[in-house]
Computed example of a mutant assay.
Amino acid sequence: MPRSRHGDGTRRTLMARRHPKRKGHAARAKHSHSKPGAPPGAYELPEGGEVTVNAIRYDAAGFEEWSPADATGISDLRRPGKTVWLDVCGLERRTIEALAGSFGLHPLAVEDAVHTHQRAKVESYPGHELIVARMVGLSDGEPTSEQLSVFVGPGFVITIQERAGDPFESVRERIRQGRGLIRGAGADYLAYALLDATVDHYFPLLEELGDRIEEVEEDIATTQSDGNLQRIQHLRRTLITFRRAIWPLRDAVQSLARGEVALFVDDTRVFLRDTLDHLLRIVDLLESYRDMAGGLMDLHLSMVSTKMNQVMQVLTVISTIFIPLTFIAGVYGMNFDPSASPYNMPELGWRLGYPAVMVLMAVIGALLFWFFWRRGWIIGQRPKGGQGD
């Protein structure tokens, strides 16, 4: 049985096995789907899997918090005048069936909750609403995306997560300590608080992404490392993951704020408009970062092209210096016999002919190098007196 609280106290827990977090998400995440031809509302889940259930029941006077050890502890939780929040971490058949039976959840809504490939949306069903959002994060630098399903009905909120770990601890503390309006409001306000915590969790993630973009931009401009292209591609994949999670959620929250769902009263819709404003700011940041990531690719290609042009410039200068030298060497490499005619390279018989040719070649090379240096065409050297000298 739950133990009542009317203030601070030690939480009594009967925790089931904790669902481990996945480490590394380089591979594409796998989501469950209905089999082709399956009837609407059908789903397949393992029985006896790892799942954690936490329950909080509260009103303006106090709260109760406990963790049912199994699915049998889920039934008969609703009380008149109180709001109950069931937080389920993990997908397990007996637990999901107990939730659906105890709270009258529609089969199609349950199917959307357990098939975790859904876009963020709001769906209305008899007796309750289903809000689907996505919680994004970074695990070892890799983007993660987890579906959050929120069932909202008169006097109850049910959250179903794929695994343990969420941004809702601040909401739990507000319930325990009675801060704010949450204990005196209804289930719709609790649903708003959960959505608001999910949205606010995006801000530090986007800030971290912004820092990464600046680091990559600085590295591209200074080091031209071979790994910059991979880092840019990783940033773009991360932004795509975040965009897929955030853009549909904007439309879902907008429908709630506009009053399209009768369960959310006018007082709660005022707060939802604030959440919508946060989402719009996040969308603007996300689009700015997408443009910056696209600019990083252009910058990287420009720096690679500049580096290649510098290499080609060095090779061109070297080749240009050796062109007249090669011409001279080619002329004197012709096999004309001076004894056959006085016009057949008479300087070959001159005792200073070879030193004179070498001095001539050295002078030509030095003059060409000086000319290129004056024009500023030598790598790492600035032109003196402008390009027209």
Rank of each mutant, 00 (worst) to 15 (best):
A16M: 06
V122G: 11
L77K: 02
T83W: 02
V270W: 04
L263S: 03
D166V: 04
I240N: 06
T320A: 15
T223D: 10
V88A: 07
E92H: 05
L263N: 01
E214W: 06
Q147T: 05
I232A: 02
G155R: 01
P107A: 14
H19P: 05
L181C: 07
A197S: 15
A113S: 11
A100G: 14
E162I: 00
A38V: 10
L205E: 09
L138Y: 07
R18E: 09
W85I: 02
N228T: 00
P154W: 02
L91F: 04
I175T: 01
Y289I: 11
P80G: 12
D274W: 10
R22C: 02
D266Y: 02
F369H: 07
M15E: 14
D389P: 08
P68I: 07
N228R: 00
S339F: 04
A252K: 05
E347T: 01
Y332C: 04
K121Y: 09
H115Q: 13
L272I: 14
G41E: 07
A293F: 06
Y289G: 09
L315P: 14
V317C: 10
A252G: 05
E44Y: 09
E260S: 05
H25Y: 13
K384Q: 12
R236D: 07
I246K: 00
T238E: 03
L14P: 04
K82L: 10
L325Y: 08
T241M: 11
H25S: 13
R134G: 04
R119I: 13
L256T: 08
T268E: 05
V157T: 01
L249P: 01
T10W: 11
R382C: 13
A71Q: 13
A257K: 10
L206A: 09
R281A: 12
A60K: 10
L256I: 13
R5D: 04
I246H: 01
D112G: 06
R28A: 14
R134F: 02
P126C: 03
A26Y: 09
H19Y: 09
A55L: 15
F336T: 03
P36M: 08
P346H: 01
K307V: 03
D251P: 12
R273Y: 09
V199I: 15
V253C: 12
E208Q: 15
R5S: 13
M297H: 04
L276S: 09
V84Y: 03
R250A: 02
P40M: 07
I379N: 11
A109E: 15
S341T: 00
R93Q: 14
P36F: 13
T52A: 08
D277Y: 09
T320E: 08
P324D: 11
T144F: 11
E111T: 13
I160R: 01
Y125S: 11
Y354G: 02
D267T: 15
V88M: 04
I323F: 12
T241V: 14
T241H: 10
K35T: 11
S288K: 07
D291P: 05
T316C: 07
W66F: 12
V157N: 01
S32R: 13
T198V: 15
R375A: 11
